[in-house]
């Protein structure tokens, strides 16, 4: 599901996007350091039918190089059958400061979970 990928990305996405992999936070968007290759987020699908999952990031000069390097770094133990890469600075993420405002209001709305319905026994796993 795409939502899962989106949720997975910000974990490494926005916080990492402004981080120089060689030392601390620079506040500079990824790949804007002098002469530095841009940062790419890597998503790998382990099998057909499953979703692409965020598995890390790497620096590469262009998209093709990013895919090739992701293949070397993230699929060498048969982890993957498909790779997506996306420029880290192209990911739009929610602001961690908005966390309370965004997500807490859902806390007291348990009725949104479909746990109040009686399921027929024939419907096995739901």
């Amino acid at each position: 599901m795409s939502t899962e990928a989106k949720n997975a990305a910000p974990g490494a996405g926005p916080s990492q996007a402004g981080r120089d992999p060689l030392g601390g936070s620079t506040g500079v968007p990824a790949g804007r350091g002098a002469g530095e290759w841009p940062l790419w987020e890597v998503f790998v699908r382990s099998r057909a039918g499953l979703d692409h999952k965020h598995c890390g990031s790497l620096h590469a000069a262009d998209a093709k190089m990013a895919v090739q390097m992701a293949r070397e770094v993230y699929t060498r133990r048969q982890e993957g059958s498909s790779i997506w890469v996306v420029r880290s600075d192209q990911i739009v993420a929610s602001d961690p400061g908005d966390k309370d405002m965004f997500f807490d209001p859902a806390e007291d709305k348990v009725y949104r979970h479909p746990t109040f319905y009686k399921l027929p026994a024939e419907v096995d796993h739901m």
């Binding site: 790497l58 620096h59 590469a60 090739q68 390097m69 070397e72 770094v73 060498r76």
Partner: peptide, 11 residues
Amino acid sequence: PILEEDIALTN
């Protein structure tokens, strides 16, 4: 020259 190429060449 870079980690990923180190892995690529030895791979």
